[in-house]
Lab assay of single mutants.
Amino acid sequence: MASDGVVVEIGKVTGSVGTTVEIPVYFRGVPSKGIANCDFVFRYDPNVLEIIGIDPGDIIVDPNPTKSFDTAIYPDRKIIVFLFAEDSGTGAYAITKDGVFAKIRATVKSSAPGYITFDEVGGFADNDLVEQKVSFIDGGVNVGNATPTKGATPTNTATPTK
């Protein structure tokens, strides 16, 4: 695992066909100046998982989280898009600690492993708008004895992609 920078880890949970599971997305290594904004994309298989919603985690402190935390689910493109932009203008609602960034709610549709993997990152910046190093650890849903650990090695991303 990367020793510096922010680590975004997609949790690994267990479920069975027809059940709804909650998959946490963790941030670790949050910089001392916090995270003022970030955007990134995960990939998944809508034939295996139906993403039914995404909720902000406990490290989102904006009293009205829909102003700073936004997501979009595109089953036709097989992606989930995340956007966080601190909304106070003063840094008061920045992410300042490690913990759960988001909770992905999904219904298991198939007995195949439900991988959720890193696809791309736009950027991560602290309260001074300084770009942060970030790496990703894939996860998803274990169905029966299947284990979604494909790509469990962190993917280092030093520069934003478009």
Rank of each mutant, 00 (worst) to 15 (best):
V25I: 09
P75E: 04
T19M: 04
F84D: 03
G122E: 00
L83V: 01
N145S: 09
A112W: 02
T117A: 04
F69Y: 11
R43G: 11
F40Y: 10
F101M: 14
S16P: 10
F84G: 00
Y93C: 12
I52N: 06
V8N: 15
E9Y: 09
L49H: 13
F124C: 02
P56W: 03
E120H: 01
V30M: 02
D55A: 11
I73P: 00
P56G: 10
F136Y: 04
T153E: 12
G144S: 12
N47E: 10
V17T: 07
V100L: 05
G11T: 08
P160I: 14
P113K: 12
G29F: 15
K67G: 13
T157R: 11
D126I: 00
T14W: 01
I54C: 03
V100K: 13
T159W: 14
V17K: 11
F40A: 03
V13L: 04
A92N: 11
S135H: 06
P56S: 11
A106N: 05
I79N: 01
S68P: 15
D126W: 00
T90D: 13
Q132K: 08
I35S: 03
G11L: 06
V17W: 03
F101C: 04
G5N: 07
T117W: 07
T20G: 06
I79E: 01
I52Q: 04
E86F: 00
F40N: 03
Y26P: 09
V41F: 01
A102H: 04
G123I: 00
I54L: 04
V41L: 02
K162R: 05
V25H: 07
E120V: 03
V134W: 00
K78R: 12
A146I: 12
P148G: 03
F82Q: 07
T96V: 12
L129K: 00
D76Q: 04
I51E: 02
V41S: 01
I95F: 13
K67R: 09
V6A: 04
T147E: 13
F136G: 13
F124Y: 02
G151D: 09
V7N: 05
I60C: 05
D39L: 00
V13Q: 03
P63T: 13
D128Q: 06
P24K: 03
G15Q: 11
S110H: 12
K133Y: 06
P46Y: 06
I79S: 01
Y115L: 08
A106G: 14
D55S: 07
N156K: 10
P160C: 09
A85C: 04
I79C: 02
G18A: 10
T71W: 02
R43N: 15
D128W: 03
F40H: 08
I60W: 09
K150H: 07
D126G: 02
G114K: 09
P65K: 04
D138I: 05
T157E: 13
D76L: 02
T96Q: 03
K78D: 15
Y74R: 00
I60M: 07
V41D: 01
K67C: 06
A94I: 03
S88R: 07
V8G: 07
K133M: 02
F40E: 14
P160K: 15
G11H: 08
D138W: 06
K78P: 01
A146D: 11
V61K: 14
V8F: 00
N156Q: 13
A102V: 05
V121D: 15
A152I: 10
L83G: 01
I59E: 04
G114S: 06
V48L: 07
I52S: 08
N37M: 01
P160G: 12
K67M: 14
I54N: 05
T157K: 12
T71I: 05
D98H: 08
G151Y: 13
E86C: 00
G122W: 00
T107S: 10
F40Q: 03
P46M: 08
D39P: 00
S32Y: 10
D87E: 05
G123S: 01
G89A: 05
A112S: 08
G29S: 08
D58H: 13
T20P: 12
Y74P: 00
N142P: 12
Y44L: 03
R28A: 12
R28F: 11
R105Y: 14
G34S: 05
V141R: 12
G114N: 06
D55R: 08
L49A: 13
T157N: 13
D128K: 04
G89V: 07
A106M: 08
D58G: 06
G57N: 15
N37S: 12
S32Q: 07
R43T: 06
V13W: 04
T66A: 08
G140T: 14
R77S: 04
T20A: 10
I51D: 10
E120R: 01
V30P: 10
G139L: 02
I54R: 12
G34N: 06
S110N: 05
K133F: 08
G18Q: 08
P148Q: 03
A36W: 00
P160S: 12
G91A: 14
D55Y: 04
D4E: 03
K103C: 15
D45H: 07
P65F: 13
D76Y: 02
G99F: 05
E120S: 04
G122H: 00
V13K: 11
T153A: 10
I35Q: 05
F69G: 04
P154I: 06
E120Q: 03
F124V: 02
G15T: 07
K97F: 12
R43V: 10
F27L: 07
V143Q: 14
F118Q: 10
N156L: 11
V7H: 09
K150W: 15
I137K: 12
A146V: 13
P75S: 07
K150T: 10
G18E: 04
V8A: 05
S3V: 03
I116V: 07
S32F: 05
P46G: 03
T107N: 06
V30D: 03
T66Q: 09
I59L: 07
D70P: 03
I95P: 09
G114R: 11
E131W: 01
P24M: 04
Q132I: 04
V141F: 14
E22D: 07
K33L: 07
E9H: 07
Q132R: 08
S3T: 03
F82S: 03
V100P: 06
K133G: 04
A36S: 02
A158K: 07
L83S: 01
D39F: 01
P63F: 14
I54D: 06
